[in-house]
Structures are given as C-alpha cells and as structure tokens.
Nucleic acid binder design. Structure first.
Lengths: 131, 131
DNA sequence: ACGCATTAAATGCAGTTGCATCTTCGGGGG
DNA sequence: CCCCCGAAGATGCAACTGCATTTAATGCGT
C-alpha cells in the first residue's frame, strides 16, 4: 500500500514543486513571447478545442480549470478583448454565458500548441518528476 | 530511453498541474489559516532550518527558492515584520544581507511543519502524480 | 587612486489571482 | 402572483508576483 513515510512525502512534494516551477515558468514565458497569451489563456483555448462544438458555458469551463471563478471570468475577458473567443448569452438560462472559439482563436491555439509541445519536450522530458 | 510521445508528455503535464494545484491550494490555505503564513514564507523558514546555523545570505536563499529575487525580498520583509526572522548586515560584504531565524521563527516553523506534513499526507498520498 | 562594469538587495509599477460582494436570473413556497 | 433562496457571472479590492530600475558596495583595470 505504498506506505509513504513523511520524509518521502516531503521529497515527492519538492519534486512536484521543482517540476511545476520550471515548466510553468518556461511555458508561460514561451507562450507570452511567441503568441501573446499566458498559460491560463492557453488552457482555456485548449478546453474549448477539446469540447466538440468549440463552445462551453463559463460554469463548465470553470469546472475543468485550476482557476477561481473570478480569475476565469477575467481570463475569458482578455481572450475576448484579443478576439480569440466570443461570449454569447444562452437562451435556455439567461444567467449562463457561452464561450466560443473564433477562427483567430483556433488559429492561435494551433500555433501555441506547437510551442507548448516543444517546451514540454524540453523541460518535462528532462525532469525526473517521479521519485 | 523512455521515448515519451507528445500525447504522453501532455498527459504528464496535466498530472503535474493537477497535483500542484490541489496540494498548493490546500497547503497555502492550511498554513494561512493555522499559522498566518503562506507557502513562500514557510519555504523560507524551511530553508533556514535546513541551514546548519539557521542563517543564510539573501542571495543563497534565492538560489534554492522558486521565487524571483524581488519576491523573495518582500517575503523576507513580511517574515521580519512578523518577527520570525531578522535581517542583519554582513561584515565581509556590506551589500549582502544575512537572514536569521528568531526563536519565534523556529517555533512557528515547527508548528507549521506539522500542518504541512498533514496536508501532504492527505492530498499528495492520494494523488497519482506519476504517469 | 579613479572610474567603470558587476553584484546584492530594495523598490516602483503593472499584471494576475482569490475573496467577498453585487447584479441578474431561475425555481420553488405561500 | 409575489417573495425569498440559490446559482451564474462580473467586479471592487487587497495581496503576491515578476520585470525593470535604483541604490549601494565590490573589485578590476589603468
């Protein structure tokens, strides 16, 4: 049953921390530099691509993101400002907001994904990330 | 030679992200709630405990932290404000600053470490965190 | 000894985040 | 039909972070 001792746990946590810090820093930097978006923005685009129709309700997006509701709201606002997504009301429930990829959004995601893969290959492959 | 495919890399990254988000959120919350310090503050105390004499130069601290130089400077300022560390000049190099644990700092770290271990045991043991 | 590039640390500033709150809307009771 | 509670999103606010710059001190070359 794994039986992880305390010291072992701390070591694993340090590994996760090291891995996360290195990769997220490199990823954020690369995405910002090459495509003008941050990790959070990319994550949103990624979720929208995964959704079959390319649109989701804010609430559903929030569920699959590691971001508070307010942070997500602002992230989507930035994406909309940059023309990468559109927000539209939902007829069924007028409180809900649909977030939908634009053509520019798909394009940006496609390019950004290449960068993401490259950064992961460079910084995650090298990392042990496992005890 | 591991031969990690692209999809595999992305999956591993998602795992790290999930693990980090869950644990860091719980940890930060627990430390703040129970001891009035955040993760960064705890990390600094932890490094100082690890240092045999209980003191380090800012520059050395910076090297072992996943934090920018400016963020570290402010984190130490908060710790000093709370009386958990003391800053003192270094005679050898008057640009350098020594950061030294106070008795209160040792005490706080000791208690906080218990909380840390508990959170890790609860949230990290459950996580797969490895592909 | 003087100046200049470099290093350690601090600080102004802008950007992102989370919490609490606010607004708007939906869904029951009475 | 009206009222109240809860849900979906947006927003004010304070805290933390990183970047760029500043201040102060070291030391190397002349």
């Amino acid at each position: 049953m794994t039986e992880t001792g305390e010291t072992d746990l701390v070591r694993r946590w340090r590994d996760v921390l090291a891995c996360y810090s290195t990769v997220s820093c490199a990823l954020d930097r690369a995405l910002q530099e090459a495509h003008g978006i941050g990790m959070s923005e990319f994550e949103v685009l990624d979720r929208l691509i995964d959704a079959s129709c390319g649109d989701l309700r804010m609430h559903d997006l929030a569920g699959s993101m590691y971001l508070s509701q307010s942070a997500l709201s602002r992230t989507v606002a930035r994406l909309e400002r940059d023309g990468l997504v559109e927000r539209s009301m939902c007829a069924d429930d007028r409180r809900a907001i649909f977030v939908k990829l634009t053509a520019a959004g798909r394009e940006r995601h496609s390019r950004a994904r290449t960068t993401q893969r490259a950064v992961l290959a460079q910084h995650l492959a090298a990392e042990p990330a496992r005890a």
